[in-house]
């Protein structure tokens, strides 16, 4: 499960929907894996304003990932028009001024889309329910008395 998804998934119990403690679910005993993906700059730009940045920081902290800045980056920081030094020689005149992915965008891509939770548990901070994650798949089936 991608770190991106951890920023959106909530406890499945109806009783937890309204509780602020139910989000984000807390990863426990997480085994992480990097799964390489093609970078999709427009997708990152699309979801960036939708992220709960504080929740992302907390989850990254709990997973022992890199420290994130305290405020969310602005969409303007995702692209740069200055060609990277190594590219200048090859870029033709028209290409040189095209906006290109910034380092920030690359880092967000790696964190949100390539860093995945392969196994472990997700725990609700409100009701304590534990959702198992195995082979990257999270089990959100609830026993009927919890629905």
């Amino acid at each position: 499960m991608k770190i991106l998804t951890l920023n959106f998934v909530t406890c499945a119990r109806k009783a937890c929907k309204a509780s602020p403690a139910a989000f984000p679910l807390r990863p426990r005993e997480a085994e992480l894996e990097i799964v390489e993906q093609d970078i999709n700059p427009l997708f990152v730009r699309n979801v960036l304003p939708r992220l709960e940045w504080d929740a992302l920081r907390e989850v990254c902290g709990e997973l022992g990932l890199q420290q994130l800045p305290s405020t969310a980056p602005s969409p303007d920081d995702l692209f740069t028009t200055t060609p990277a030094a190594a590219d200048t020689a090859m870029a033709d005149a028209a290409d040189a001024h095209e906006p290109r992915p910034s380092q920030l965008l690359r880092d967000l891509h790696t964190l949100l889309l390539e860093t995945t939770m392969r196994s472990g548990k997700l725990v609700c901070g409100n009701c304590g329910h534990e959702y198992a994650v195995k082979e990257g798949i999270a089990n959100f089936l609830l026993p009927s008395h919890l629905v």
Binding site: M1, A12, R50, E52, I137, F140
Partner: peptide, 25 residues
């Protein structure tokens, strides 16, 4: 889906129990 290396994240879930994502996801 795992064997086919699906790109999407997968949840074992019963849609009849609801949709466990925060509003506006």
């Amino acid at each position: 889906a795992l064997e086919r290396e699906a790109e999407g994240d997968l949840f074992l879930a019963d849609a009849g129990q609801g949709v466990p994502f925060r509003p506006g996801t």
